[in-house]
Structure formats: structure tokens, C-alpha cells
């Protein structure tokens, strides 16, 4: 088995971004963050208005990775067994046979996740948290790498079920794509005029390699002061006067892991505070619950994280 290093992670990142850019125009930063989630063994929630390319981003990621891909289109009548799979009676064998559901794929696109009922949403919890699925008392391990890319529309609330906090906390990152610029939109029109480039997208790596790169990321060195910075940052979310519930220790763990992946993608085997700052909003914002009066005032979790990034002491060289 070849020994991978951070330079391999950086090369993987470059190839993936170049490949995905064939489909997604001008979304390099979002793609980088998506790769960070993949390398950190995390799951991503893409939250944006319809038609900005959420589904396409997930599909192009799966195509570039070369792993198995499945899509679950969430509706209110979707059942947990539609996600996890179910045992059916095989008359020939005179026994129950397990038929795996779409969650058994390596990259799973859960489209419009907030349209599924809480019962179905929670069936994703075990898969996302533990990397395994239990059906009829039998536990099935999911193949590595396993990543759930869920999407939801933040402006349409009718007939939707907002994600429970427990599940929201299990998403490693929440990303927004945003509208493309005029130039980028023109480029999209040009590229999609004849054939959609997704159909011609070839994989640039193998799923096994991704799993090994995840191990490389986990070994990236985190200096004590960076760890302190992460802890102070996360703790400051709990003490912020406009926040009802701050980020959990799972948020600290996710932030460290995300910073490790960001460092590895920059071909560094050590984390710097800039990596933490780069990932802080995507990792922490969705883990905060703001007070009702703050929401009415128009404060957002992202703005609070931004404010804290300007307040919390990074601890570069003590008092200068």
C-alpha cells in the first residue's frame, strides 16, 4: 500500500477542484470546503435557493471520486426503510433477505432533506454519526469513504420539517453556494449549451485513496496554542449575549479536523490559526441557536462568528 503524505492531499485537492470546475463555474472556495468535509470524514448540508447548483455540486463530487453514488429525493411520504433498506421475504430461499437502501452508497445526496418527516430524517442519524445502519436488529457497516451531502432550501417553509438540532449538529459543514456573477453565469450558459459536462466527468481518484488521505489528514500536527484558540473560540460562542445555545464540544472537534484538512490541502503538515479562521463560520454557524430577539434584530449566526473571530485572542506571540 503506498504511503500518502500531505503533498498527495494537496495534489488530490488540485485535481478534484479542477475536475469539478468543469461543471461548477466559479465555486472553487465552496468546492474546497466540500473537499475538506470529505477529507475530514464529515457530512455537508448545502443550504441555498433552488437552481444554484447544489445537486450538481454533489453529483460532480461523487463522479470525481469514483465512488458509488445514490440520490434520495425527500418527500413527506418517504419512509425510513426507503433510506436504510429493508428485509424482504424470498420465497425461493424461504428466508428474509436484506435489500440495501440508497444510504449504502459512498456518496449520498439527500435532496431537500427538510421535506422528509422527522422520523425519516432521524433514520439518517445513525448512518451519519456511526457510519453504520441497523435494520431488523442486524448492523451493516457503511463503506469508507462515506459522505452525506444534503440540500435544503432556506426560503420555502411550507410543508417542510426543520432539521432537529441533534441532526444539524451532525453535519460537519453547512455551505452556501450563492448566485454566480454575471461573467460566471454567462460561462455556465456557454458550457451547458450542447451537452451537460457532468456526463463526461471522469473520476480523478479512487475511493480507497480517499480513505487513506483521510488518515493522512488526521495526522496533521496541531500545536497547543492553535488548540487553545479553537477552545476559546468555541467557548466564546457559549458566552455570547446574543446566543441562546453555543457550539458543542463536537463543534470544537469538527473545527480542529476541518483545520487539519485545510492545512493538508495547502500542502502543510501543521495547522495555522488561519486554517481555523477559514473554516470557523462553515463549521460553527449552524451549531448556534440565537436568541429570539437577536433573530428579530436581523443578527445571523455567521455574523456572530465573524464578530468573535475579530475578538478572540489568537495567541500568536502573547502580548506584542
Amino acid at each position: 500500500m503506498p504511503q500518502f503524505s500531505v503533498s498527495d492531499v494537496a495534489l488530490f485537492g488540485e485535481q478534484m477542484i479542477r475536475n469539478i470546475s468543469k461543471v461548477m463555474v466559479g465555486k472553487e472556495t465552496v468546492t474546497k470546503r466540500l473537499l475538506i468535509a470529505l477529507l475530514s470524514d464529515g457530512h455537508v448540508l448545502l443550504e441555498d435557493v433552488p437552481g444554484v447548483g447544489k445537486t450538481m455540486l454533489a453529483r460532480s463530487l461523487a463522479a470525481s471520486c469514483g465512488g458509488s453514488f445514490c440520490r434520495i429525493q425527500c418527500t413527506p411520504d418517504l419512509l425510513p426503510s426507503d433510506v436504510t433498506g429493508l428485509s424482504i421475504y424470498n420465497q425461493k430461499q424461504e428466508d428474509f433477505v436484506f435489500r440495501p437502501g440508497p444510504i449504502m452508497a459512498q456518496i449520498v445526496l439527500v435532496d431537500e432533506i427538510n421535506r422528509a418527516t422527522p422520523r425519516t430524517q432521524s433514520s439518517l442519524l445513525e448512518a451519519m454519526g456511526e457510519g453504520q445502519v441497523t435494520v431488523d436488529g442486524a448492523t451493516y457497516d457503511l463503506r469508507k469513504p462515506f459522505m452525506v451531502v444534503a440540500t435544503q432550501n432556506p426560503v420555502e417553509f411550507e410543508g417542510t420539517f426543520p432539521l432537529p438540532e441533534a441532526q444539524l449538529d451532525r453535519f460537519f459543514l453547512v455551505l452556501q453556494l450563492g448566485y454566480p456573477t454575471a461573467e460566471e453565469e454567462k460561462e455556465v450558459l456557454h458550457r451547458l449549451q450542447e451537452e451537460h459536462p457532468i456526463s463526461a466527468l471522469a473520476p480523478v481518484t479512487e475511493p480507497n485513496h480517499v480513505a487513506q488521505l483521510q488518515e493522512v489528514v488526521a495526522r496533521v500536527h496541531v500545536e497547543e496554542s492553535v488548540r487553545d484558540y479553537v477552545v476559546h473560540l468555541v467557548r466564546s460562542t457559549r458566552q455570547h449575549p446574543q446566543v441562546q445555545l453555543g457550539a458543542s464540544p463536537r463543534g470544537s472537534l469538527a473545527l480542529i479536523r476541518a483545520a487539519q484538512a485545510a492545512a493538508a490541502l495547502d500542502s502543510r503538515d501543521y495547522v495555522v490559526p488561519d486554517d481555523v479562521k477559514f473554516m470557523a463560520t462553515s463549521v460553527l454557524a449552524h451549531r448556534l441557536i440565537l436568541k429570539a430577539e437577536s433573530i428579530l434584530r436581523g443578527t445571523t449566526a455567521s455574523s456572530i462568528i465573524g464578530e468573535l473571530l475579530h475578538q478572540v485572542d489568537v495567541g500568536v506571540e502573547g502580548d506584542l
Binding site: V272, P273, D274, H310, V316, E317, D319, L320
Partner: peptide, 12 residues
């Protein structure tokens, strides 16, 4: 050009 404690070395 004072160094702010919330700045990283790169930002400075």
C-alpha cells in the same frame, strides 16, 4: 501598525 491579538501572523 500595532499587532492586534485577534490577528494571525499572516493577517498581520
Amino acid at each position: 501598525l500595532a499587532f492586534s491579538p485577534s490577528q494571525t501572523a499572516l493577517e498581520y
